[in-house]
Amino acid sequence: MSVQKIKEDVFSLRANDWDRTLFDELIPLPDGTSYNAYVVKGKNKIVLIDTVDPRKTKELIDDLKSLDLHRIDYIVSQHSEQDHSGSIPEILKMYPMAEVVTNKKGKEFLTELVKVPEDKFLVIEDMGTIDIGGKTLKFIFTPWVHWPETFSTYLEEDKILFTCDFFGSHIATNDLFATNEGKVMEAAKRYYSEIMVPFRTSIRSNLQKIKDFDFEIIAPSHGCIYQNPKMITDAYSDWSSDDVKNTVVIPYLSMHGSIQKFVDRFVRKLQEKGIDARPFDVVTADIGNMAMALIDAATIVIASPTMLSGVHPKIAYVAYLANVLRPKAKFASVIGSYDWGGREVDVLSGLLGNLKVEMIPPVLIKGDGREEDLKGIDDLAERISQKHRSINL
């Protein structure tokens, strides 16, 4: 961890987690992640904005000591999840005079989750302010990105918007700012795909809420700081919109080669029609890459053999994940292979109940299939092409 200056009397205290390979024990992290805390020094008060994951508490304490802070007056807790709030109890031991600044819901969570004493809170309201001497903090409630209590903090004089999980990215790096835009945006999209996709409506509302603030810097609590805020706000506007791309995502699993053959043919037929086809073998694929592809896809087609009259557990897992994330796809279908029968389509349809999609009739083929059976795959590609054209893709 290291202390880096953002502006005069404003510092980043970043704990890089280079070795973290999974986030929420779900999505692979090829570039690790970071937990970012911030210190703002006013003439009268000193503020710590967010803390870090409990596993990095010692690094945060060392950095606070390196700043030679004899006091912290306020600990602003923008989000109560433990990777941002988990170090608060130890910081309160160091700075017992500090008050924990949060909203009513945040107080409820922090009391329960990290056992902050009731008498340590300063509860703020939406658009409330704190003057710390030459610097003013304004609190902007941005709920459901991705918890109900989350808020952002606007440092008026320095035009910095601290956003916690909002606009974050999973990347461990020594770069303070998002200078490698391609790399950072890929990490930001992976981050968005894991936790933000189900909250598109709230994200759109919160983007509208912050748009009239004159901020030059966005400082999230994961990943790099944006000196070009429009880069990430435009991306969030795109990702959270109802617009989809001419893309079909195809999670598949092949036990004996039949499904692999069907998927290969299906991908070729879609590509011939100018459709971006993205197959993912669920046994070996990076689920994070698949989740990123799901953000924009117009159609999802799950391809699976029948197993014990249902579906393979890995396919069930992917269907469950898609159902939880609720991507904005418009259409869905199934390609199945069976030997003697089963309820594969019924099982998958049940697992996808949260998706607001039009179900296109499935293609079910016995064994390897005959040529006339395989033409059903061609017909499915054509139906999808027609559906995509119907919404002007």
Rank of each mutant, 00 (worst) to 15 (best):
V101L: 06
V116F: 09
F121N: 03
L110D: 10
K115Y: 13
H170V: 07
A187H: 10
K189H: 12
V184D: 15
E125G: 05
L122R: 15
G182D: 15
T142N: 05
D119E: 14
E125W: 09
I124A: 03
D165Q: 06
E118Q: 12
G133F: 06
F177D: 13
F162K: 01
F167D: 05
M196T: 13
K104E: 10
I160W: 02
I140E: 02
I124F: 04
F162H: 02
P198F: 14
F162T: 00
G106I: 00
V101T: 06
C164L: 02
E108W: 06
K107C: 06
E186G: 10
L110T: 04
S169W: 09
E181C: 02
K138C: 00
W144G: 02
K183S: 03
T136Y: 01
F162P: 01
Y154G: 00
G168V: 04
F166D: 07
P198Y: 14
I140G: 00
E149F: 08
T136I: 01
I195W: 14
K107V: 04
L122G: 11
N180V: 05
I140D: 01
M185G: 12
V123F: 08
V114G: 00
I160M: 02
K159D: 04
W144P: 02
I195K: 15
F199I: 08
G106L: 03
E125L: 07
M196E: 15
P117W: 12
F177S: 11
T150V: 09
E157Q: 15
I171D: 05
T173Y: 14
T142S: 10
L176I: 11
P117T: 09
L113A: 11
P143C: 07
I195Q: 15
E156K: 07
P148Y: 11
E118A: 10
P198L: 14
